[in-house]
Computed example of a mutant assay.
Amino acid sequence: MRHREPTIRTTREEDWRQVRELRLEMLQDTPLAFGETYEHALGVSEAVWRMRAARGTTPGQTSVVAIDRDRWVGHMGGWVPDAASGPLLVGVYVSPAYRGDGRGVSRRLLEAVEEWALGHGDALRLEVHEQNPRAIAFYEKLGFSLTGHSRAYELEPGGLELEMIKRLR
């Protein structure tokens, strides 16, 4: 059975309610994958959610979502922490029912972020928790490789965030 492909687009400030809803889903599904707790996100103000949603239209940042009819089913973002390190992939999430189902949500979201990233460098980096082997395998399948660099994960349970990179040109 062929599924309808979700719409892929950048977020806008007026999307703040949907951005909030998807972020809360992300934090409940895979809390280890994001540098924020569900409890913290519940307390974030409307102004902050509006700012997060506006990342899709903010220079030096992007926020891309997959929408199936009215349901938001995936997200990937990017930002440039500094010119020397280049663009960083962040906020990667696809709802469980859309993972590996043939609709290509992950691939299409990543293609949109890669297109944005090419305006900021020749590679795209990300960080993934060492205790998230499913995500590491997913990123490797999409062409990322471990760099050998890591940093401490700031939330419980601790551990390391491993850096991965994908050359874009």
Rank of each mutant, 00 (worst) to 15 (best):
Y38C: 03
E5K: 12
L155C: 10
Y139T: 07
Q28T: 07
L160V: 01
F144V: 02
E140R: 12
V128D: 05
L146A: 14
Y98E: 15
E21A: 15
E127G: 08
R17T: 15
R20G: 03
Q61G: 00
I67P: 06
R71P: 01
I67M: 09
T37Q: 09
P59H: 04
H75Q: 11
T57H: 10
E115R: 05
V105D: 04
R125M: 02
R107L: 13
P6F: 06
E39C: 01
Q61V: 00
D82V: 00
L124A: 01
G121K: 04
G148R: 03
A41P: 12
G43M: 04
I8S: 10
L168G: 12
T57C: 07
R69S: 14
L109C: 07
V48P: 06
Q18G: 03
D15G: 08
D101Q: 06
L110Y: 04
E156K: 10
D82A: 06
R52K: 13
V80P: 11
A152F: 08
V44M: 08
R52Q: 06
S106I: 00
G91T: 05
M1T: 15
S45T: 13
D29L: 00
N132K: 01
G35W: 06
L142F: 10
G56P: 07
E114D: 12
A47W: 05
P81E: 14
Y153K: 05
P157S: 11
P31M: 09
D82G: 08
R99K: 14
Q61D: 14
V90P: 02
S106H: 11
L126Q: 07
R17W: 04
P96A: 08
S45V: 02
R17Q: 15
P133L: 03
P81K: 11
P87R: 01
G91P: 01
Y98A: 05
G102N: 11
G143H: 02
